[in-house]
Structure formats: structure tokens, C-alpha cells
Amino acid sequence: MLVVTRKRGEAIVIGDGIEVHVLRLGRDGVRIGISAPPHIAVHRSEVRDQIRKANATAATASSTSAALEQLRSRFTNPGKRREG
């Protein structure tokens, strides 16, 4: 991993068009600003990790045929729909 020291107001450049700016330094956190080309998706890593975990669970969670039938019947009888 590349490690660099930056002061407030300084930035680093990644590849062609990605810039990471140090905006503010606090006691417990650093506020950073990221500018990237429109085709580059930027996410907090914990959100991505959460989705990874959710996908792993969705791909392996127990799925009895009875549970599947019950779920299908719920969709065809939407009377019991819960409000979100």
C-alpha cells in the first residue's frame, strides 16, 4: 500500500482524473473530497462489504420448498402486504 502524508488542502491524484482532497482534519476523522470521472463509482468500503456479506448469505441461506411456496403465495395474495 502506498502511504503518503498530506496536509489540509492537499490532494492526491489517482490515474487519469481521480482526485482525493483532504478537506478537514478532526480528532476522530478526516473529511475527504473525491472527484472522479462519471463512469467511476465511489462508495464507502463498509457499504460494499455489507453488500458482499448480504450476497453471500442470500446465495446460501436455507431454502426449503415449503418456504418458497409460502413466499410465492404471498406474492399472489398481496392482501397481507406489510408497509415499509
Binding site: I51, A54, N55, T57, A61, S62, L71
Partner: peptide, 16 residues
């Protein structure tokens, strides 16, 4: 949306 059929609950991933 992807569904998770857990033992006691079915959930949907609305975030992703």
C-alpha cells in the same frame, strides 16, 4: 432485488 430465505424471515436487499 435479491431475496434471502432465512429460517424465520425473508428479506430483500433494497440497498443494492
Amino acid at each position: 432485488v435479491l431475496l434471502t430465505l432465512a429460517l424465520h424471515e425473508v428479506t430483500a436487499n433494497l440497498r443494492a
